[in-house]
Design a protein around this nucleic acid. Sequence first.
DNA 1: CGAGAGTTTGATCCAGTTCAAGGAAAGTGG
DNA 2: CCACTTTCCTTGAACTGGATCAAACTCTCG
Lengths: 263, 263
Amino acid sequence: MPFLNTPLTKQDPTVSMGTAMMTPQGPLTRKLSAFVALSGSDLETLARFHKRRRSFLAGHEMIHEGQKNQSAFILAKGWAFSYKMLPDGDRQIVDFQIAGDFLGLRSVLFRTTDHSVEAITRIEASEVLATDILDGFAHSPRLATAILWAASRDEAMVVEHLVNLGRRSAEERMAHFLLELGARQQLVGIGDRTGFDCPLTQYHLADALGLSAVHVNRVLRNLREQGLVTFQKGRVAFDDIDGLVELAGFDTEYLDQDGPLMR
Amino acid sequence: MPFLNTPLTKQDPTVSMGTAMMTPQGPLTRKLSAFVALSGSDLETLARFHKRRRSFLAGHEMIHEGQKNQSAFILAKGWAFSYKMLPDGDRQIVDFQIAGDFLGLRSVLFRTTDHSVEAITRIEASEVLATDILDGFAHSPRLATAILWAASRDEAMVVEHLVNLGRRSAEERMAHFLLELGARQQLVGIGDRTGFDCPLTQYHLADALGLSAVHVNRVLRNLREQGLVTFQKGRVAFDDIDGLVELAGFDTEYLDQDGPLMR
DNA sequence: CGAGAGTTTGATCCAGTTCAAGGAAAGTGG
DNA sequence: CCACTTTCCTTGAACTGGATCAAACTCTCG
């Protein structure tokens, strides 16, 4: 069963839009630019999404399922996860979010939010209001397309996660999951082939992979004893990445982004 | 193990764009209009997506994983399913598509397709080229927003499916799945609270729910003997829909669409 | 009528769960 | 700086939901 904390939010004062606005080059901008060549005015529109800087403490619930008129966030720093609770108190983690990820987009497109998001570490993010987004799209079709692309990429990850749960053994799931996390970290320039820092607990893993926390522990031990990965003390170390890729049937295709599609 | 057929495609001649273009009012248009109020020119852009009429025989693989420059389809009639194959020959069905569903959108946004789609019944659909879509978005930001909304709705279904696989028992999964299918059918005006016609086999159910076909059979028997649902001879009959909803922890929230958000 | 495609049922097995308990690390407050 | 708590990790033992193997039964349809 999940452990739930209900900490405080620290809301930073709104940051003024100075010259910084012209060169936001946050991880999201970088990500989107990899897909569509955004013009100066597109970038300006996107920069307007970054007006409201916010910080959240670890454990804070940033988005609540069932809430109306929820705003979205662009994550600049830290880790979060989106999840759903079941009536019996079980929790299913749908995805983890890191720097550059858009979070809660669905909750602005729908009237009421269909999932929750909780901060794992301390979070730095920009709050984006529904109207910012909708107006932004109206002014910049390319931005809308880029965001659609980013959303599709997220969906591809959820699909891969689905396959994981539906058809892979506990060991394969774990291997696949850690590799995906590693690959995503590398895409934003954190970590390398040898591993990455990871603030997740075994409970997070259990709730993401549809396993019990006890079994997660055993699976991690197996993988470690086979010399494949070591997850200890907040660090994932890929001891034998090729062996791991082989075990997981891992394929980075769905994460790859090889140059802009739209110019 | 899945049964795979490789039948032929019948490609109908391109349908001319007559007055029909002005009043396409296909199920997709209806669906999108429920979210954004589309102007005349938006509708025209959307109508241009319907130039290339196609038919496919049951069993035809409409979209192949790994293919490049794949086009998308708007489904007008019939059932299809999207899936992924695993190296060991296992299949995971990600979603089923019915009339009004956009299919293969991700495969045009990405360079190479990350999933396959197979026709279950005979299919009538419009083929939409990547350029149609990208140009369409450039001309009509509202259309782009509407499609993003539709894609998000699909993602919400995938997420619900994920929760299903991760945290629900076989019986709950089946109950939830059949209810969702029923609700979707009703949204496009097919079937009612008593049930709907359903061309799926127990193999389809197994590959969608991450179960063995044998167990699917047993679960269906249990549900039938409890007087909850009967799935026989191509028809799902909700014998006790309230009991079923209760068992599944089903909530239609994520499918609801209560009036346009954007005017 | 014969052949595939799909459904049904029984018997056996195992991957992962549940229950139970200790242990280590890291904060917290006196 | 030491007791005390909380969070998280680890391991053992027993159990079970769903898988697997095997076989027969029922459609349809060519």
